[in-house]
Structure formats: C-alpha cells, structure tokens
Amino acid sequence: MLHIVNKSPLEKNALDSCLTHAQAGSTILLIEDGVYAVTKGNKVEPAMKKVMESCTVCALWPDLEARGMQDTVIDGVKQVDYNGFVDLVAENATVQSWL
C-alpha cells in the first residue's frame, strides 16, 4: 500500500496519523510541504528513522528542491521524480492520501 503525505509535519497531524496506520512493508511518499519530514534536524526525524526500519520512505525531489531542502535529506530516503511518483501509484494496488 502507498501512503501519500503532502502536509508539513509540524503544521498538521497528517504525518502522525499516517505513521500510526502504516503497516510494515508499506511505502510512504512525501510530497509538497510533506517533504520537510525527511529533512535532517526536523523534530520528526527520529519518528521517520523508526518507520524506515519497516517501510520504504520516498520524497518527491522537485518539491525538496523548490524548498531549498535538497541537500539536507535523511540518509536512506528514496528520492523520486514525477515519473517515479507515477510508478509508485501504478505499483501499489491501493493509495491512501493523508490530506
């Protein structure tokens, strides 16, 4: 299953809710303001590192770059472009967007 989060982790509880529902083996894709969750030093970094033990975490590269956060991404996060985004949606039978 693919989980998509597009809200900043320190502004909305969408990421919190996603992390408490995502099962092992899921993929979590962060887009738009959601990408701040995978930047080093963010308050949610420990929570992201923990979920990365059981889930694949991806972040949309153009959104990281737009925000000037491209050089500060947590190690192990898979960076994808728009084609990668489409592939993820195609690979997963179900998609939950945590709006």
Binding site: E65, A66, R67, G68, D71
Partner: peptide, 21 residues
C-alpha cells in the same frame, strides 16, 4: 515563526514544480 521560517531558506529552486521562486 513555525513553518514560516522555511520562507527564507536559502537554495530554493522551483523549476521542477513550475511555480515562481
């Protein structure tokens, strides 16, 4: 304050998202 600090982060480049930087 809060996420507002991100507004003035260095190194923003918006070509990829098609919005004005």
């Amino acid at each position: 304050i809060d996420d507002g600090v991100y507004q003035i982060k260095k190194g923003q480049g918006t070509k990829g998202i098609g919005m004005k930087n």
